[in-house]
């Protein structure tokens, strides 16, 4: 019962954030204007045009990105048995970023779907490498591995960028942001994200079992390797799609699942919903703040909020690693 209410509450929160994000920015609009544009359609005046053509895709992109990053972080934390896992920490974002830049170089007229595929493969390779080399080792090993591989991959990306004069491209991916995403691109991403999230939702019981730890998994007879692979592929897919639309976002995938788990416990049936809604709403609001602060990169804002929180998590929950 309590869980149902929480979902409702988060839906309302996400709805309010959506309207706020639609209303405020470089130019502000009233609620009425937003509702008119979205629901009544008709012929669009100038303000309506801006709302529909520029701001709506941006807000939706922000919501989707926040949702995908947060769920991806949640799954990675569960499956790697590590409270500090998150796509950017594990180097998945760096891998996706590198693959996208490399693919753009090889084929300059790449379709958006092909770019997504490249990002996914890049992220997947890094994720597999990291899990493989750190499988039987301590959680701090996992995190150092991620940090080191990220540094390496960003350097390789820099190398490609400098030797091929792609400065603009780099600036976009390092600072990121939801601006400039088209509704067509969202039309590619949204269905894939929906399918992936449904798969994860169906597997929520198996994910719950991961929380018991490896020995318990073995004795319960779960085919853990298989579920680990399936869920991680899903998580990497979500993370790499978010890299393709908003660049590298740090900490969000860590912060949101932790807040959710503090409030609502650990059952994935619910946490997947909560993290998705909450992460999406949070990213919309951060993007709104970014727009109001002279178009500051939104990732910078999230990093600024996330850093103290991350340190807090390390000092409280991460103590067993230290």
């Amino acid at each position: 019962m309590k869980d149902g209410w929480l979902v409702l509450l988060l839906c309302i929160f996400a709805g309010v954030s959506f309207f706020a994000a639609m209303m405020f920015g470089v130019e502000n609009y009233s609620v009425g204007k937003v509702v008119d544009t979205l629901f009544w359609g008709g012929e669009l005046d100038r303000a309506g045009g801006i709302l529909y053509e520029i701001r709506l895709p941006r807000v939706v992109a922000a919501f989707l990105a926040g949702l995908m990053i947060s769920i991806s972080g949640l799954i990675m934390q569960t499956v790697t048995h590590n409270n500090l896992s998150e796509p950017s920490i594990l180097g998945v974002n760096a891998g996706a970023n590198f693959a996208i830049v490399a693919a753009t170089l090889v084929l300059p007229v790449l379709s958006f779907a092909a770019m997504l595929t490249a990002g996914f493969l890049g992220g997947l390779v890094v994720g597999v490498i990291i899990l493989f080399v750190t499988r039987f080792r301590s959680p701090i090993h996992l995190i150092l591995a991620g940090a080191g591989i990220s540094l390496f991959l960003y350097a390789v990306t820099d190398f490609l960028v400098i030797t091929n004069n792609l400065g603009q491209y780099l600036a976009f991916f390092t600072s990121g942001g939801a601006a400039g995403v088209s509704l067509g691109q969202l039309g590619v991403i949204a269905p894939v994200a929906a399918v992936v999230i449904v798969i994860l939702y169906v597997l929520s019981k198996e994910l719950d079992v991961f929380l018991f730890g490896e020995e318990m998994l073995a004795s319960l007879g779960q085919n853990q390797r298989m579920y680990q692979v399936i869920t991680l592929v899903c998580a990497v897919l979500l993370a790499s799609m978010s890299v393709a639309i908003v660049g590298n976002v740090v900490f969000l995938g860590l912060l949101v699942p932790h807040i959710v788990k503090m409030i609502a416990g650990y059952m994935h049936r619910w946490t997947i919903l909560y993290t998705g809604l909450f992460g999406g709403a949070l990213f919309m609001l951060s993007d709104m703040a970014a727009r109001m602060l002279n178009e500051t990169p939104v990732n910078a804002i999230i990093a600024m909020i996330g850093l103290p929180f991350f340190i807090y998590i390390i000092r409280t929950r991460g103590r067993k690693y230290a």
């Binding site: 920490i89 995190i143 940090a147 600036a171 740090v250 178009e295 990169p297 990093a303 850093l307 991350f310």
Partner: peptide, 19 residues
């Protein structure tokens, strides 16, 4: 651990004035 966190966080908000 905190060093890695700070490295990531500061690298993120490095770009705060770049607009």
């Amino acid at each position: 651990l905190i060093g890695i966190a700070v490295a990531m966080g500061v690298t993120g908000f490095l770009y705060v004035f770049t607009s």
